[in-house]
Design a binder for these strands. Structure first.
Lengths: 352, 352
DNA sequence: TGCGAGCGTTAAATCGGTTTAGCAGACGGA
DNA sequence: TCCGTCTGCTAAACCGATTTAACGCTCGCA
């Protein structure tokens, strides 16, 4: 695993000094060294397969061309994995290597991870979370130029990017309103404390209703445990409402809830999308694309956010001003086959 | 992001030389330096918050305490993500940092990634694949002490770990036989070339039938595209067989296929597990645990394999002998609720 | 002949540690 | 008193690159 050939070997073969080799290979030679010598050096390097020891280089230049991604669990759960992919892609595009550290959210481990990365002289650190979070306590050794991904520190001054959950919810619910629905339930998740996304998506939901002049019905906002079983239970509750209060469409907090909603619909003999329309959130490939019919949902822009974070970190994208707050990345609607017009025979439209 | 305090600062504060500081902090002082001095040095280091620059240290010691994980896509797909988690865990336990590189399977990128890691002087490289694969061509610059994860190089000499697909299939099908089934279909996937796992799981399937004295019925081995729709189509084909040839149990190549099999069962008015038993493979949380009823499946030991690979790489676990071939990691059966005895009224048992 | 300028190249310092060889001083024994 | 040993510490080399200051040479010109 040791580096065989060094710059001195190249120098010897080319019949010049190590300094010349360095100059040539780093294109600092410009007009100081004649093309003939440059050619000789390059050929020698090529010939003996020279590749500079990046450690030595970094020690001198104080730039390692490495960055660290410290996350709670994103690299180890199937949810937000594309953020890692994006981070890696951008790193590679800029000739950087990516250190990955998972902390499981343990503050002590986080501190330790940041310290280890700093000891390695990384050029920058991205602090990423699996879900949209607001962070009260940060590792106190986090460098000032860290960038936050899918998380927003309570204190200002750090660039941060989070999904536009409110906007995504608006798109989702608008899709249902556009299809003619007026009785739209929001199958939220039950968690304490309520996740940031929950509040924001609810806001979006209410916003669309308001714009459409639909009076929100508190009975249509239910909560369930965030899995298919929970979604099934919660969805059942609204589907069992008396016919005139029953929703014709469900906006589900996430795709797993939606998966449960599908089961509930089956249970109640309702066909999707003929009798009931469903929209999810997250666009989880393993669910949304595999359900039958395919689930219309909102995509979390993990890849885009990952790119943004590392691009800002590496200076390839302008750092937002300190007082700008977190950047909101749009969540696009992904249309599949779970939305249709409300059933004509069913609970009719009231105002829409 | 620069390191403020260096070893010289500690030396100055403690009133000794840098050499002494180094000796003390690396516990090479033993009996050469009196406790009082050691104490003084340590206190000074603590006081000014000294942490050694790992780059400089590595340059001298020729050990970076970093390893590289180059993979096709594991870090960016929800499937085998736990391998990354394991790799990271083991790395941390041994005081190492993990470089992550995804190549998407592109040989040029792979070569480039390996080169970049070697330039960084990593202590070792794990070459990982998303699925159990046999590799014909390796990046030619891969160091001789690389370890393979979920992949087996065609050439020998490299430690490698893969899942025991044959054993997992045996456990799965045995579970069905033990429940009393004799007509068991294998819903395989259709891919060209056939994945290694496909052949191995088929072997396991046939092995159990043989042991149980059940004549394999070629009509019960069908293939479909590897997603829920494909699984539904393929499962439908066997469920539409005449009643006396129809299977009472399905062994599905993976959980997505099984998800489709659930849909097919519903379509044919069959209740799981009363009318039809189903076993999957992979134990994909998003599917197996969320289906209703919960899917009995076989777990791919991603975490265990990831640990194994990095432990071997770091010498924490004995390297298998060169002629041993790939290590087979057991795939445990995960019992949930999709297996029951065959229906009594249904297609009866023939020999079992 | 002497001098300055420009050209091509390199010696040497540097980054921040580790490691080896050895120095200075105290002490003990002959 | 002298020598050897032991104790406690440090100077200096080293890892492998980058970077700066400057050297030697040639050439042109006065």
């Amino acid at each position: 695993m040791t580096q065989r050939v060094g710059i001195k070997d190249v120098a010897r073969v080319a019949g010049v000094s190590a300094a010349t080799v360095s100059l040539v290979l780093n294109d600092r030679a410009a007009d100081r060294i004649p093309p003939s010598t440059q050619e000789r050096v390059r050929r020698a390097a090529q010939e003996i397969g020279y590749a500079p020891n990046r450690l030595a280089r970094s020690l001198r230049t104080r730039r390692t061309h490495t960055i660290g991604l410290v996350s709670d669990r994103i690299a180890t759960t199937p949810y937000a994995v594309r953020m890692v992919e994006a981070a890696q892609d951008v790193a590679r595009e800029h000739g950087h290597l990516l250190f990955l550290v998972n902390t499981g959210g343990d503050p002590a481990l986080e501190r330790e991870a940041v310290a280890a990365l700093l000891d390695q002289q990384v050029d920058g650190i991205v602090y990423a979370c699996m879900w949209h979070r607001v962070l009260e306590d940060l590792p106190e050794n986090l460098p000032g130029d860290a960038v936050f991904l899918d998380a927003r520190p309570a204190v200002g001054g750090f660039p941060a990017v989070v999904p536009d959950d409110r906007g995504g919810a608006i798109a989702a619910v608008q899709e249902l309103v556009d299809a003619g629905h007026t009785r739209i339930a929001f199958i939220d998740i039950e968690e304490d404390p309520a996740p940031v996304a929950s509040g924001l998506r609810r806001e979006g939901y209410l916003e669309v209703l308001r714009r459409a002049g639909i009076e929100p019905d508190p009975a249509l906002h239910v909560r369930g445990v965030s899995d298919a079983a929970g979604g099934m239970a919660a969805a059942s509750r609204v589907l069992e409402l008396p016919e005139d209060r029953r929703p014709t469409a469900l906006f589900c907090f996430n795709d797993r809830i939606a998966m449960g909603a599908y089961a509930a619909a089956r249970h109640h003999g309702l066909q999707i999308p003929t009798d009931l329309s469903v929209v999810g959130y997250d666009d989880q490939q393993l669910i949304a694309a595999e359900l039958d019919p395919g689930l219309t949902t909102v995509r979390l822009p993990h890849y885009e956010m990952g790119r943004w974070a590392v691009e800002v970190l590496l200076g390839a994208r302008a750092r937002p001003a300190d007082d700008e707050g977190a950047v909101l990345m749009p969540c696009p609607l992904v249309r599949r086959d779970s939305v249709g017009p409300p059933p004509t025979r069913g609970p009719g439209r009231r105002r829409g």
